[in-house]
Simulated scan of single mutants.
Amino acid sequence: MQVRTAVLADLATIQRLEQQAVFDEFSATELQQGISGDFFSESQLKQLLQLQAIWLLEIDAKAQGYLIMAPFSFHQSAPLYRELTRRCVANDVLLDWRNLSVCGPVWLATAARGTGAFKLLYSAAKAQVAGKVMALVAEHNERSLKAHCQHANMQIVDFMTLAGRDFYLLQD
């Protein structure tokens, strides 16, 4: 198992992984209700690659997962993060938006889960960023919540409904 920073040549691989992963974040109920996931555009992925904000997990030289850790400023124009900012301010949740990175999305192939892959990905990414890291984890995603708390030493800062879905707000 190896972790490395993704490069522009990995763009097609990341797009393929993202398409595989997009529905993993939703509960069975949300999927039955017809919820759809959002993909990063090619332009956004290129920007993330230029920021060196994507880490790939490879097993036997095949990509089996990824983690994105980008500055909050990259995400701040997205509706979910605009709503997050408003809710944090309204709830007196203090986050230093200027020195904050966002961990996520993260996706691991089924074969990579439970192997320490998340810890490897997170450690590699965290070593490259300054300041605090936050994550939003969907309420139903117990495995992700456990991984972030145990392997990234994140703490639950708040619980909130954003864009009609319930999330834990975590910070290291």
Rank of each mutant, 00 (worst) to 15 (best):
R87A: 13
N99M: 08
E83Q: 13
N91D: 13
S101L: 07
F74G: 01
R98C: 09
S101G: 11
S77L: 07
D92M: 15
V93Q: 04
P79W: 01
D96L: 10
H75W: 13
S101H: 15
S77T: 11
S101Y: 14
C88I: 07
F72S: 01
V102G: 05
C88E: 06
P79T: 08
L84F: 03
A78H: 14
V93G: 06
A78M: 15
R82V: 09
V93Y: 08
D92T: 12
F74Q: 01
L100W: 05
Y81M: 01
L100T: 05
D96A: 10
V89R: 12
A90D: 14
D96C: 09
V102I: 15
C88N: 03
R87Q: 11
A78N: 11
F72E: 00
L80C: 03
D96G: 07
R86C: 10
R87Y: 09
R98V: 07
N91S: 13
S101V: 02
W97N: 08
A78I: 08
E83P: 00
L100E: 03
L95D: 06
E83S: 03
L100G: 04
S73E: 07
A78E: 12
D92H: 12
E83W: 02
D92S: 12
V89F: 07
V93C: 08
N99H: 15
L95E: 07
Y81K: 00
D92R: 11
F74K: 02
L95A: 07
L84Q: 04
S73F: 03
E83Y: 02
R86Q: 14
F74E: 00
S73Q: 11
E83R: 05
N91I: 06
F72G: 00
W97Q: 05
A90N: 12
F74H: 00
R82A: 10
A78C: 01
T85D: 04
H75C: 02
L80E: 03
L94Y: 10
L95V: 09
D96Q: 10
